[in-house]
């Protein structure tokens, strides 16, 4: 039990999956085309570079 509870504490702080989800979204070629005029997408602007690459 202790191992599981400790692991949960670690998992809570670990953003790796969240960053991977964001990167996965950016790597979809269709994403840019679909949302380029959406103001919400503009809020991810800093990362647009990655998509273009």
């Amino acid at each position: 039990m202790k191992k599981i509870l400790d692991m949960i504490s670690t998992l809570k702080k670990d953003n790796k999956t969240i960053i991977e989800y964001i990167n996965s979204f950016k790597q979809i070629p269709k994403t840019y085309e679909l949302f380029q005029n959406n103001p919400d997408f503009e809020k991810l602007k800093d990362d647009k570079k990655n998509i273009d690459e």
């Binding site: 949960i8 998992l11 809570k12 790796k16 999956t17 991977e20 996965s24 979204f25 790597q27 979809i28």
Partner: peptide
């Protein structure tokens, strides 16, 4: 495509975060 990208990245999903 999103799912495919996640699977290809072979990430260990952390559902807690």
């Amino acid at each position: 495509a999103f799912l495919d990208s996640i699977v290809n990245s072979k990430i260990e999903i952390n559902i807690v975060s």
